[in-house]
């Protein structure tokens, strides 16, 4: 009798513990998802990602719509833009609502832009439907403005940035046009010209690119070697100059004109970056929602 009783109690314990475990699992998944969302709200993105991964693994396909979107946000906030773009893409395909799909496309575009993948960002914007409402259309113009600027198509970029501003901001539009005019001056700087100038007169290319300190430095260094070469030629012979001075002169002369080209490139990139930042500053000053 005792054995039967014992067996029965073991059987019931097993049944109840299994039931409890199953129920507990379902609740856990739901609670884990809620917990991950709480972690996002408290800006603990790395922990939130770990938790979302757990929900994805045990959820077997459920919660995907929300999870991919939230994971994209976590990666975006952690500045891992490559993964952010990947998860926004997954969220896009899991989503059914058209408006949210468009928002996800913008988020993916933003991630690609911040990762400096301007070409892919442009492809993403091409995927948007033509008949967007004014809100999304304006947003597309804003992102297209950035994309074209990154790709070096400044004419298109200017058009898009101007369209990204509401019609009530005539003053800001004029300001943007003026900023793009300044860009024409920067585009006139030619790294090739800087290189050639420095080939003839060491340091001149650097001065042309606006770097006086390096220009003077290069000039004095090369002039020093030239004086040394003349002195050696008079005191010893031209062969002594060829063996002892010429390799050094050649090294710093070459370094000078290559440096001039690099300085000109860097100057162009720096100026473009500042102009771009100025444009976005003007846009940020317009009335926002």
């Amino acid at each position: 009798m005792n054995i039967v009783k014992e067996k029965l109690s073991v059987f019931f314990i097993l049944i109840f513990s299994l039931l409890g475990a199953t129920k507990g699992h379902t609740q856990d998944l739901h609670q884990t998802f809620a917990f991950a969302n709480e972690l996002i709200e408290s800006e603990q993105y790395e922990r939130a990602l770990l938790t979302f991964h757990r929900v994805l693994f045990f959820g077997k396909g459920s919660y995907q719509e929300e999870i991919f979107h939230q994971m994209g946000t976590c990666y975006y906030e952690l500045q891992d833009f490559e993964n952010a773009a990947r998860y926004y893409d997954l969220a896009y395909f899991a989503e059914k609502n058209d408006s949210i799909k468009i928002e996800l496309t913008f988020k993916k575009t933003s991630s690609l832009l911040l990762n400096k993948d301007y070409g892919y960002a442009q492809i993403e914007l091409f995927n948007l439907p033509d008949n967007l409402n004014p809100y999304f259309s304006q947003k597309r113009n804003f992102y297209e403005g950035i994309t074209y600027f990154g790709l070096g198509n400044f004419t298109e970029s200017e058009k898009k940035f101007l369209r990204a501003l509401p019609s009530g901001n005539a003053e800001e539009k004029e300001e943007i046009k003026q900023i793009f005019k300044n860009l024409e001056k920067v585009e006139k700087i030619s790294p090739k010209k800087a290189r050639i100038l420095s080939m003839f007169i060491p340091g001149l290319g650097q001065v042309y690119a606006g770097d006086w300190r390096n220009g003077l430095n290069s000039f004095l260094l090369n002039a020093g070697f030239a004086v040394l070469a003349v002195q050696t030629a008079f005191q010893y012979s031209i062969w002594d100059v060829a063996i002892s001075i010429l390799p050094w002169y050649q090294r710093y002369h070459m370094g000078g004109y290559m440096g001039a080209e690099r300085i000109a490139y860097e100057k162009i990139e720096r100026e473009k970056g500042l102009i771009y930042s100025e444009i976005l500053e003007v846009i940020s000053e317009t009335k926002t929602d």
Partner: peptide, 27 residues
């Protein structure tokens, strides 16, 4: 729609600020 076009920008301020330093090259 006309009111929207006249006054409001679609891109929010944090969105604009997030992209502002994108092309700025630090020396």
């Amino acid at each position: 729609i006309s009111l929207f076009n006249f006054f409001v920008t679609a891109q929010s301020l944090p969105e604009v600020k997030a992209h502002q330093k994108l092309m700025v090259e630090e020396e």
